[in-house]
Amino acid sequence: MHEHEPLPPPSRLASIASIVSGIAAVALLATTVVLATQLSRVEPVATGDAPVVTSADVVTTTGAPTASGPQRSIDPSWLASTAAATGIPPRALAAYASATLVAADESPQCGLGWNTVAAIGATETGHGTHGGSAIDPDGWARPAILGPRLDGQGFAAIRDTDGGQLDGDTAWDRAVGPLQFIPSTWARWGADGNGDGVSDPHQIDDAALAAVRYLCHGGSTTTPSEWRRAVFSYNHSDAYVDQIASRANAYAAAVGG
């Protein structure tokens, strides 16, 4: 299970009380979660009381999987225009997009959109920018992003599971990397998204692919209830799910959804 407290992104150092007070404001958006597939311009389609979105594919991969890993090449024009419209750093966006294209091949029934992964990346670490960090051209968060010690003091209590290998803490676990994986979760779901033969949660291609596989492992995310179930499994908080829905919808709207 991926149960953790996400780092507050630089633009939202809010208290738990302020997060709870915002639930009502995003509740309506949360019932209209974005369900885009592939890399696409999303178009709302009314179905009953909950608008669902389908996709009109406008982007395809520009390269085959690498010899040692599944990373996809992303259309440069799509990447540039989408990054400009959403404010997502291009290197982070490329990782999110590649991961969802891989998932579309591996688990076509999942239907997870790039904008959901981007919303998680924004909420967890501001796309790898928390605390003055940044994603370098090779996809590494530098300096490394570490969440608070999960020592039961305001957070869950999770004793060290990795000997400090990923988080530098031999007493307690800490969520790590741009998508904030707990070491024990990474031990099960870690992925090699950039094809370098190593699975590392501090590298955004690896982290994004692991996140998408985790979100898709329960099956389809193509209805609001299925989507909410998947995101709730990533972080067991309805407020968190509402926040991801709000951001995912905002990204879709920014590119014409």
Rank of each mutant, 00 (worst) to 15 (best):
G164M: 06
A95F: 06
A207Q: 09
T61H: 09
I145K: 01
A141P: 03
S21E: 14
L112D: 01
W114H: 04
S11A: 14
S77E: 14
G87Y: 07
D192N: 14
S184H: 13
P90H: 00
A80I: 01
A103Q: 13
D151C: 04
G257A: 11
A83F: 04
H4A: 13
A17L: 13
G195I: 02
P70R: 05
A250N: 10
I74L: 05
T54F: 09
A118R: 03
Y234F: 15
Y234D: 07
D160G: 00
A83K: 05
D167R: 03
A92H: 12
S11E: 15
P143Y: 02
Q243S: 14
I135Y: 01
A14Q: 09
W227S: 02
T37R: 15
T170C: 00
G132H: 02
T100G: 08
S107Q: 15
V42Y: 03
G164T: 08
R188D: 11
P51S: 10
G256L: 05
P65L: 01
L29S: 15
P90Q: 13
Y96L: 03
V241L: 06
S133W: 01
D105S: 14
D196N: 15
A56C: 02
P201W: 02
P9C: 07
E226W: 01
V212T: 10
W140D: 09
Y214N: 03
A171D: 11
A191P: 08
A94K: 08
L35N: 08
A83Q: 10
A104I: 07
G111R: 03
P76Q: 07
